[in-house]
């Protein structure tokens, strides 16, 4: 293979120097710190992130309008929101393992929010969506050039909300309300409770619950982000960071100069790029097989492939 990690100018292991961010972040707080730095320095004037229900209910003017009944919204359901303060960014930190359609806000961000320079965080598929709408802006007038910073997060798979609910409440026998953090790492799905309990589920259990659309996905490390980041490859509390585009390069260099991050060479950390490469290859190979299998899914009938 060889292309599994995408194009990049640099790869490091990094974490935020902001203790407050590290307290709330999923891993090294790369996303929150980077967007925060970009806000501070005017690189962006707002960012699209995934907020939780408490934040969303309180700041309804910042989220997408949908049919939500706030009395009924479950914990751990993410909502895409356009935020423009560091406090709000912090409130959005942490991974929510179910779908947050962040790209749904990208046009509105430039409209009723009045943003000229939009930041966005998203999974690899969401980065693909952003780049597609920049090159082929079919329903995205005056949006492409306004995307000032796109931060991609690594992603093996995502889940529908009900899947997470069943994993947490059935398999792990915990209440959704009492979950503090969820994480996939070291071959397990980890659920941390607010009272300190920790449950781990083998990934064998989680596979069935994955969203089917993920099974044709050919990108693990957000090849199309300006900067992409994830936990895999770096020690606990640290993140692996790929600096990919010209924009990414300049933002990262400036953030480093401003002391936003501390870094270690990726070659020096364990498990390092080797594991990232291995997982990326596994994902891509598996999903290429799915795409192949779709060709002969029926009798003389194929399922569609989106790739041309």
């Amino acid at each position: 293979m060889g292309a599994e990690l995408g194009k990049y100018k640099a790869c490091v292991s990094a974490r935020s120097t902001d203790k407050e961010i590290l307290k709330h972040a999923q891993d090294g707080g790369i996303v929150t710190s980077l967007l925060g730095y970009a806000l501070d320095t005017g690189i962006i004037d707002g960012a699209i992130v995934a907020v939780n229900k408490e934040f969303a209910a309180k700041h309804q003017s910042l989220i997408m309008r949908d049919n939500t009944n706030w009395d009924m919204v479950e914990p751990w359901r993410p909502f895409p929101a356009v935020v423009s303060t560091k406090a709000d960014l912090l409130a959005a930190a942490g991974t929510k393992y179910n779908i947050s359609p962040n790209v749904s806000m990208i046009k509105e961000a430039t409209r009723s929010f009045g943003l000229d320079k939009v930041g966005i965080v998203g999974t690899p598929c969401q980065m693909q969506a952003v780049r597609k709408l920049q090159l082929y802006p079919i329903g995205a007038r005056d949006v492409g050039a306004a995307v000032a910073l796109a931060v991609g997060i690594f992603c093996m798979e995502n889940f529908p909300y009900q899947s997470i609910l069943q994993l947490v409440e059935d398999h792990a026998a915990m209440k959704m309300e009492s979950v503090k953090k969820m994480e996939i790492g070291k071959g397990k799905f980890w659920i941390y409770g607010k009272r300190g309990q920790v449950v781990q589920l083998p990934l064998k259990v989680t596979h069935k619950y994955e969203q089917p659309g993920c099974h044709v996905c050919l990108d693990y490390v957000a090849n199309l982000g300006d900067i992409s980041t994830g936990s895999v490859g770096s020690p606990d509390g640290w993140s692996t960071v790929f600096v990919r585009s010209k924009i990414g390069d300049s933002v990262w260099a400036n953030a480093m100069a401003a002391g936003v991050f501390e870094t270690q060479p990726i070659e020096k950390v364990k498990p390092g790029l080797e594991l990232v490469t291995k997982l990326a290859n596994e994902k891509i190979t598996k999903n290429k097989n799915t795409l192949e299998a779709r060709k002969t899914f029926g009798v003389g009938k194929a399922l569609r492939s989106p790739y041309i």
Binding site: M64, R65, I99, P101, V103, G122, T123, V216, L303, R304
Partner: peptide, 28 residues
Amino acid sequence: NQGLCMGCGSCASACPVNAITHEYGKPQ
């Protein structure tokens, strides 16, 4: 229907009449 949607939200932002929302992450 083809099992391809992953909930990115592009469709909702593209729609010129706000006909698409995302409910539990998926387009309605």
